[in-house]
Amino acid sequence: MELRFDGITKTFGELEVIRQFETTIRQGEIVALVGPSGCGKSTLLHMVAGLQHPSSGSLTADGKDVSRPSPERTLVFQEHALYPWMTLIENVALALEFQNRDKTYAREQARKWLGRVKLAGFEDYYPHQVSGGMRQRCALARAFIARPEVLLLDEPFGALDALTRMTLQSVLKDLIEEERPTVVLVTHDVDEALYLADRVLVFSNRPATVLQEIELGHIPKTHDLSAFAHIRRDVLQLLGIDTDSEETITETLQATPQATPSRQGEIA
């Protein structure tokens, strides 16, 4: 599914969040939106999901105006999006039940998808009984089960520790390669963007405009991103982060007095 953003502007009252955003995301492309927090990149994602609407400009999916949510365009939230009153398998099956699919079929599929994200054996656990990483695996299963044409990810692993995050990035990468949806990923983690995306859009502070577009192409990648060191440095510099001290950046964009050092290349 091709997504076309045409002169998208979004204002909340007096506050201009996004200014004149233009791009076309090709069918099957994986695009990462990187930028400072609160710059409006999540708003763009929610527009594609049909949860929010542009103040002006047009957003089309395969030529049709995006005006409301549709299971073709599904969104994975940062956290707390699983229903605490349902077990993992019920959470995943719900995506099909909402499309009025047969309950037994939905459960079968949910079991299969939980297996694909390595959660076999945890079907009947409630979300609060498993770890944050397992909850996000489940959230991925719930997104993929509906076979969406567009997969939208809103800082999907933002609340996880570094190691779990890298594992889940690999799980996600495999799923994307097998299912080939069009992907829009919002992240504040530059390494995540470089690892997963074919193209990275770097956003400025509010009102968000694109500072730079980096074409990475669809090439096989591992978590060893040393080949991308120069790109990574450029991106961090664009985001206003001092990269003189080589690869040991721990500064954050909105440094707070007691800011705990975050992972390399991460901006708050």
Binding site: G50, P69, P71, T74, H80
Partner: peptide, 28 residues
């Protein structure tokens, strides 16, 4: 929780499904 409502909308829940499967258990 807003995210519970948004998630259901993204999954294509109808108004009735939303009441039965999201709002009702959430308020229980």
């Amino acid at each position: 929780e807003k995210v519970h409502i948004s998630a259901a909308r993204v999954m294509g829940a109808s108004k009735l499904q939303m009441l039965r499967r999201v709002y009702f258990p959430a308020v229980t």
